[in-house]
Design a protein around this nucleic acid. Structure first.
Ligand code: ZN
Ligand code: ZN
Ligand code: ZN
Ligand code: ZN
Lengths: 150, 150
DNA sequence: CTTGAACCTCTAGTCGCTATAGGAATTAGG
DNA sequence: CCTAATTCCTATAGCGACTAGAGGTTCAAG
């Protein structure tokens, strides 16, 4: 019952203030009680919950999976089969993404290395983009979304 | 002047019909002439342009970068310095993402391997999510967005 | 000339946030 | 106790790169 303000909770958890409110709005984080003036007052349980979510996000889990994992951790007597399944699925997904990125990395390296740095018309980068036949192999048959940095 | 319909262009380029319209709407792809009834009629230039974009997307370039690269390729006499810079930046970004995903992969592997597959309370997956100290190392200090599959 | 496939525009949804505007509440200092 | 600075509130819109659906029109094969 440490009665944390949202800002303090943000500092302790490493999750930004607007993100905490966002998690509450989509039902990922329990809505806390409010001060007489209407401000959120969090307890230790919320901090734990938020750290769980943050750690899961760092490991690449989607919020849906984390919700399922959260629900499971509230039922300590059940078999952990489902939790392990989610983790294995996540591992497979990460491996798939790494494989795709490795293929992309090889092609990018190749085109950067082979460019003689002259004029655009002879630029290996531009040429390769115009013609996949200049690539060494196949790359990224599947989708890749570019992440954002903050 | 092959006078391609959008559907045929989609098949020839590997880019979906709504995506082609989307590219036009954001100015990535030149707006084609229309049939008397108002339907889009593409030429070979559009097909080339679209293949360029698609190839670039497969290599992980953002649409902004691809626009810049497209503009450069229209000026064949200029130095390719800028193009090479964009490609090197992209390579660095891909390397950064691989490094992050490798760290995540190691942790996921670790937690899946160490679980004795009993009850949730003793599940290494759940425990690790609750406590980063059970991780072997640091992972993903930066953002990662989960890609979508189609 | 009919019919069914392909096309059109427009809007809203995806994921996981982030940013801004325009206020109200809290807290630290004097 | 009062003020000023800081933090907090809601609500809305935007990011990237699409995808999905509704409701209507045009085209091309037979
Ligand atoms: Zn070059
Ligand atoms: Zn290629
Ligand atoms: Zn387990
Ligand atoms: Zn960890």
């Amino acid at each position: 019952m440490t009665d944390l303000s949202i800002g303090r909770l943000a500092r302790l958890s490493g999750v930004k203030v607007p993100t905490i409110r966002y998690y509450e709005s989509i039902g990922m984080l329990d809505a806390p009680p409010r001060s007489p003036g209407g401000q959120r007052r969090y307890g230790d349980g919320h901090l734990e919950q938020l750290r769980f979510i943050r750690h899961g996000r760092e490991l690449g889990f989607g919020l849906d999976d984390l919700r399922a994992l959260q629900d499971l951790s509230a039922r300590p007597d059940r078999s952990c089969e489902e939790a392990d399944g989610i983790a294995r699925k996540q591992l497979a997904e990460v491996e798939r993404r790494i494989a795709g990125l490795e293929a992309v990395r090889r092609e990018l390296e190749r085109m950067v290395e082979r460019c003689s740095h002259g004029v655009v018309d002879e630029c290996r980068v531009i040429q390769t983009l115009s013609d996949h036949h200049l690539c060494a192999g196949d790359h990224a048959p599947d989708h890749q979304t570019v992440p954002r940095d903050t």
